[in-house]
Design a protein around this nucleic acid. Structure first.
Length: 423
RNA sequence: GGAGAUUUGGCAGAGUGGUCGAAUGCACCGGUCUUGAAAACCGGCGUACCGAGAGGUACCGGGGGUUCGAAUCCCUCAAUCUCCGCCA
């Protein structure tokens, strides 16, 4: 959520930056400005009236105490009118506040200067990647066939017990999952991230805090009976740890990591790249989250990108980095880097990580503040990234490392899998 | 799931209708004293919003109500604790 004070003072700039994103914000920003002005006007009047009412009440008390009963009752009779108008002003102010909040909830974050202009993922800015492209033979199999051949993943069984998009991992396939999770968590810990094991369901307030609600409601599984949501990413519970918190600048940087399954309804994306592990309703992911001083957040974003690269290097996967263009940028992000690995049998680049700086967009909703060097209270910056999401990593590992004698496990993973080959 | 108790500032804890944004202690910050520190003493010390400022308003778990006036009374929701039941 953008800060109202910022919008108030930089209206044209905000509209211009939103336009860069392909978001026509003129009308809504004007509405916001009007609602804000109205709210303030009403509050000024209301505050003055409340002050008057307070004074009268005090006087009545004094009169009663000193035994001037008639005077007190006379004054008491006068309060009705003021009270009624205050009641009205109060509900008026409440309505403006509500309107303002509703409007603000639907305005996306302002893209950072580095965000390239573009409409679709095609226009993302490709940056230097790494790793070597594998040379596979003609008979190379896609991962869903390899998964079947080596009995690593059973998609049909998943359909039976849950539905499409809920695979069952078996044998070496299950062990590979566990190995990757442990590998990623250990790496994160070595990089200074503190491990968190958060709840997998969240309440409504948390959904609002990180920006899943109100807009992406349809993307989350909702447990109606208890009004809870299954997390779509660990970002939500971990970032919400800081909701309504006030940090000291001395605590920065706050670095947290956590492994969780992620649940996504993926409504509307059926039929597109859904084969095998490419798109699932439940998948595993290790997430990294940072809460940072605003002056440091972009340095930290770069550092997080470098960190994720180091993971891909160790997994010996060819990857590229994309700076998301304005059209592809998520609602809450100011700047996002996507990491994609090449899945050689499918001949496709698969997104395995998304690393973003949200600046104060989430912090404003979360009321996540810190006290700076001068004791002033300010909103912090929040960042997060996948490090990493498993399914597409597994897809690439299986496809890229297939040989006649089986699938080779990268060296860095062997201590975690306990086997060098899948065969 | 049932019954009872509780929820006040960073923490502890007073406050049962008026002068309470809230005693007191601890913690914290500044000062005096001291070579320095501790102790002692003095002073300060919540958040948000409105206002150019003076100042004002709101907030005592959340929401609503009664009243001229609510931390205090009523309703409701939530959380915590104790006991009972059920259960990994």
């Amino acid at each position: 959520m953008l800060e109202i004070s910022y919008i108030r003072e930089n209206k044209e700039h905000v509209i211009e930056r939103l336009a860069h994103r392909g978001f026509d914000g003129r009308e809504v920003i004007e509405k916001i400005a009007t609602a804000d002005e109205n709210r303030r006007k009403v509050q000024t009047t209301l505050d003055r009236n409340l002050a008057e009412a307070n004074q009268m009440a005090r006087k009545i008390g004094e009169l009663f105490k000193s035994g001037q009963k008639d005077e007190a009752n006379a004054l008491r009779a006068q309060t009705g009118e003021l009270k009624e108008s205050n009641r009205q002003l109060e509900s008026e102010m409440h309505a403006y506040e509500q309107e303002l909040k509703e409007l603000l909830y639907h305005v996306p974050n302002l893209p950072h200067q580095l965000v390239p202009t573009g409409k679709t993922a095609e226009e993302n800015e490709l940056l230097k990647g790494g790793g070597e492209m594998p040379q596979l033979g003609q008979d190379a199999l896609p991962h869903w066939e390899l998964a079947q051949k080596y009995q690593l993943i059973d998609f049909e069984l998943g359909v039976k017990i849950s539905g499409a998009g809920f695979p069952v991992y078996t044998g070496q396939g299950a062990r590979l999952q566990r190995a990757l999770i442990n590998f990623f968590l250990d790496q994160a810990r070595d990089a200074g991230y503190r491990e968190i094991q958060p709840p997998l369901v969240i309440n409504e307030a948390s959904g609002y805090g990180t920006g899943q609600l109100p807009d992406k409601e349809g993307q989350m599984y909702h447990l109606e009976r208890d009004d809870l949501y299954l997390i779509p990413t660990a970002e939500v519970p971990i970032t919400n740890l800081f909701r309504d918190e006030r940090l000291s600048h001395k605590e920065f940087p706050v670095k947290l990591t956590g492994y969780t399954p992620c649940f996504r309804r993926e409504a509307g994306s059926y039929g597109r790249d859904v084969r095998g592990l490419n798109r699932l309703h439940q998948f595993d992911k290790v997430e990294i989250v940072q809460v940072a001083h605003p002056d440091a957040s972009y340095g930290i974003l770069d550092e997080m990108v470098e960190y994720v690269k180091s993971l891909l290097d160790q997994l010996e996967l060819p990857y590229r980095v994309a700076r998301l263009c304005s059209g592809d940028l998520g609602f809450t992000a100011a700047l996002t880097y996507d990491m994609e690995v090449f899945s050689a049998a499918q001949q496709k680049w698969l997104e395995v990580s998304s690393i973003s700086n949200f600046e104060t967009f989430q912090a404003n909703r979360l009321k996540l503040r810190f006290k700076d060097e001068h004791g002033k209270s300010k909103l912090a910056h929040t960042l997060n990234g996948s490090a990493l999401a498993l399914p597409r990593i597994v897809a690439a590992l299986l496809e890229n490392n297939q040989t006649e004698q089986g699938i080779r496990i990268p060296k860095a993973l062997v201590p975690y899998t306990g086997f060098e080959w899948i065969n």
